[in-house]
């Protein structure tokens, strides 16, 4: 257990997200309160439709909340306009999606540096070397996504998310489409980023094994936090899932 009070990298305060209205109303997030501490690797789990992706999207400023507040650091996102939100995403956040993470016309290196070059920022070469080394794609940097395996593509996506040294990286089932070997490549890489560089990561996953890489697991159901688990292992996660599912 961490004894040092960590500053929160992102938090949601009484955040609700409602899709549709009337009979068709769906409460994807139901007045949720959650906080993600800096330097911590958090996994979000829960049944399909429980609101995991929605939570990630509202935290990342991709989707506005219906009510409540969402903070990245001390910035409240609902006050921002599209342009400012975009800049927050570009400069302070990293994002890894389940699939289609890379721009097909750009090579691996260009994809990694995309947010930086969009912001007109220079890459710190030492940092880049470190990330590239960690991602293990040194000889593949000039290749386009269609010349990379699924695992390699996801590692490039994670590298992209890390390269701009964001305050927080959101990953939505980053290993959902990968076999177990590729999955562990990607997950180890994320774990290493947290351990070695103090990166903050929030990851959605369905896989207990993946969740075991995290420092903390948050269980969602029906748009609410159902439970939490610190320092998880596959076994404790499965155990808790069984309890909740039952």
């Amino acid at each position: 257990m961490n004894t040092v009070t960590k500053t929160s990298a992102a938090r949601a305060v009484a955040a609700s997200k409602i899709y549709g209205s009337g009979d068709a109303e769906v409460r994807a997030l139901d007045s949720i309160n959650v906080e993600f501490a800096s330097g911590m690797f958090t996994a979000i789990m829960g049944p399909s439709g429980s609101g995991k992706s929605t939570l990630l999207h509202v935290l990342a400023g991709l989707d506005p909340v219906t009510s409540g507040e969402v903070f990245i650091g001390e910035i409240e996102l609902s006050t921002l306009k599209d342009k400012e939100l975009t800049l927050v995403r570009r400069d302070r956040l990293g994002f890894v999606f389940q699939s289609f993470n890379l721009i097909p016309t750009l090579n691996a290196l260009e994809n990694m540096t995309l947010p930086l070059s969009l912001g007109g920022r220079k890459v710190d070469p030492a940092w880049q070397d470190e990330v590239v080394k960690a991602v293990g794609l040194g000889d593949r940097l000039g290749h386009r996504p269609n010349e990379l395996s699924g695992g390699q593509q996801q590692r490039v996506a994670v590298a992209r998310a890390l390269l701009s040294k964001p305050e927080i990286v959101f990953a939505d089932e980053p290993t959902g489409n990968l076999d177990s070997r590729s999955s562990s490549e990607v997950l180890s890489f994320m774990r290493a980023a947290v351990d070695n560089f103090g990166q903050t990561i929030v990851m959605v996953t369905h896989d207990a094994g993946a969740a075991a890489y995290a420092d903390r697991v948050v269980f969602l159901a029906d748009g609410r936090i159902e439970a939490e688990l610190m320092n998880p292992t596959s076994a404790t996660v499965l155990d808790r899932m069984k309890q909740l599912g039952g």
Partner: peptide, 16 residues
């Protein structure tokens, strides 16, 4: 469409 969404998600502004 996908690609454009991704670009916007990782920080491309509308203007860009």
């Amino acid at each position: 469409t996908n690609e454009l969404g991704l670009l916007r998600a990782v920080g491309m502004t509308r203007r860009q």
